[in-house]
Design a protein around this nucleic acid. Structure first.
Length: 100
DNA sequence: AATGTGACACCGG
DNA sequence: GCCGGTGCCACAT
C-alpha cells in the first residue's frame, strides 16, 4: 500500500466517525493495521496535521482525550456542540471513544 | 547510510 | 494528575 493510499484510508476512517463520538490516533492506527501493514499513531498524527482539513478532525484526539494542538478552541466548541462528554478540556474517552 | 523529528502511547515515580 | 524517560516508526534532512 502506497503512502497516498494510506492517507486516504485514514481520512476515510475519520469521516466515518459518528457525531458525538471520537477516535484516538492509536485507535485509528490499530484499526488500519491489518490492511495497511503499518501501526504508527505518530504517522496518523502527521497525516492529520497535513491533510486533516477536509474531515471532522476535531473528532480525533489523543489516548488521554486531549484535543489537537493548535486547534483546542475550535475543537472544544465543536465537540461540546455535538454532545461529546467532556471533563474540562478533555474528552471522557471511556464514554466517547468509538470503534468501527 | 546516518541522524533528527514528531497532532503518539505507555510506564514508573 | 503531572512530569520524564523510553519505545516506536515512517519521514525528512
Amino acid at each position: 500500500m502506497t503512502p497516498e493510499e494510506y492517507v486516504e484510508q485514514v481520512l476515510t476512517l475519520v469521516e466515518s466517525i459518528p457525531e458525538g463520538r471520537v477516535m484516538s490516533y492509536g485507535g485509528i492506527a490499530d484499526t488500519l493495521a491489518e490492511r495497511s501493514g503499518r501501526n504508527s499513531p505518530r504517522q496518523v498524527g502527521t497525516i492529520m496535521a497535513r491533510h486533516g482539513g477536509g474531515v471532522p478532525w476535531h473528532r480525533v484526539v489523543n489516548s488521554a482525550g486531549r484535543l489537537p494542538p493548535g486547534n483546542e478552541r475550535e475543537a472544544r466548541a465543536r465537540l461540546l456542540a455535538e454532545g461529546v462528554p467532556m471533563r474540562g478540556e478533555r474528552v471522557q474517552m471511556t464514554k466517547a471513544e468509538w470503534q468501527p
